[in-house]
């Protein structure tokens, strides 16, 4: 089954790497992506976090998500975030509504987040 045209990126966010705790820049970037898409953080029902240092629970607790439907990690080193896009699209096809993919650039300039709506 092709994933072509099944989901789209609807928000992107970025923050500076402020030197705060590991989840902080990801949370900040994701909130920007979510608001940019006209949504609320607690609307999220799928989380594909970057495969190290954070877990889906970090986003559930900080966003106040009441009913997460699916989460997974894609352990591919720096390519995790690319594989995560495909996972998120698969979840959209499987009837989830709003997926969240987090990335983390630790090269000195922060964090990028993207989001899908099925």
């Amino acid at each position: 089954m092709s994933l072509r045209d099944k989901a789209a990126i609807t928000g992107i966010g970025e923050t500076a790497n402020s030197g705060r705790s590991v989840p902080s820049p990801q949370l900040g970037a994701l909130v920007r992506a979510i608001k940019g898409a006209g949504l609320h953080p607690s609307d999220i029902d799928v989380i594909i976090p970057y495969g190290s240092a954070v877990v889906a629970d970090d986003f559930v607790t900080n966003f106040g998500i009441p009913d997460l439907r699916f989460s997974a990690t894609t352990p591919l080193g720096g390519a995790s975030c690319v594989a995560a896009v495909q996972y998120a699209m698969g979840a959209m096809v499987a009837d989830a509504k709003i997926g969240l993919v987090s990335g983390y650039g630790d090269m000195g300039d922060g964090s990028v987040a993207m989001m899908w709506r099925g």
């Binding site: 989840p23 902080s24 607790t61 900080n62």
Partner: peptide, 11 residues
């Protein structure tokens, strides 16, 4: 302790 408020998402 955590970075973000789960109610209003202020940091």
């Amino acid at each position: 302790p955590r970075p973000m408020c789960p109610s209003c998402h202020s940091m």
